[in-house]
């Protein structure tokens, strides 16, 4: 899946917004293909910033990041989209396109990758059924509930079968039942082979699912193994 080189590798990464203070300091970690990690830490610890580096929404201010064996600093504007297509992102605020139907929102990653419409119809239909939105193909996001929007965002993130699935606080605004439902979707994607990173500050969820954690405190990262592992 990853080819040669590290699948995901952060080496002494530092990051700051513009001339502001550094929000990530000397962050280093490796993610092996097919792993599942929680990204934990209190609000303001830098979880979203780290995820933004991971899905190429920002560039680090120092250090090196390698994704799928490629140094992200050397990616050209033509190469970056190709790498991004291997990453599925569930944004904290979903970032669904309000003027598009549920179907078209989910189809977007396939359309930008020039997948044929027949294939799109098949994949998107299956995906929407998988997340329980088979009856909402034509619905605009604004007409869906918060939980449905989140599932729609997950469907969009996984429709292109990404190698890396990144979710930023996906369970932040949903009840426990919906949070568990979402976690099952992430686990399904994981079972299909995706490497998953879920950012959360929901301690109960972390405890229940018992995956290793990338833990951030004031911009510094530590790795906490899953309970029961060596």
């Amino acid at each position: 899946m990853s080819g040669g080189g590290a699948f995901v590798r952060f080496e002494q990464v530092g990051f700051s917004y513009g001339d502001g203070p550094e929000v990530l300091h000397d962050v280093s970690f490796d993610l092996e293909p097919g792993t599942f990690h929680f990204l934990t830490g209190p609000s303001g610890a830098g979880k979203t910033s780290l995820l933004k580096l991971l899905y190429l929404a920002q560039r680090q201010t120092r250090g090196a990041i390698r994704l799928f064996g490629r140094d992200t600093a050397s990616l050209s504007r033509l190469e970056a989209p190709v790498v991004r297509r291997r990453i599925g992102v569930v944004f904290q605020d979903f970032r669904l396109l309000p003027h598009l139907s549920a179907f078209d929102n989910v189809a977007l990653p396939l359309r930008v990758a020039s997948v044929g419409e027949a294939q799109i119809r098949q994949h998107v239909g299956e995906l929407l059924a998988w997340v329980g939105l088979a009856d909402a193909l034509d619905a605009r996001p604004a007409t869906l509930s918060g939980g449905e929007q989140q599932r729609l965002a997950i469907a969009r993130a996984v429709v292109a079968r990404p190698d890396l699935l990144v979710a930023d606080e996906p369970t932040g605004n949903v009840d426990d039942h919906n949070a568990q439902r979402m976690m099952r979707l992430f686990q399904n994607a994981h079972h299909y082979g995706a490497t998953v990173v879920v950012a959360t500050h929901n301690a109960a969820l972390v405890e229940r699912y018992n995956y290793p954690q990338l833990h951030l405190e004031a911009g510094k990262l530590s790795i906490l193994p899953a309970a029961g592992s060596a």
């Binding site: 899905y55 992102v89 944004f91 396109l97 977007l108 990653p109 930008v112 292109a160």
Partner: peptide
């Protein structure tokens, strides 16, 4: 701008 950023982040080329 926001929609364009989303398109970029899901892998759209500038040309798209």
């Amino acid at each position: 701008r926001d929609t364009i950023e989303v398109l970029h982040l899901i892998g759209a080329h500038d040309d798209y």
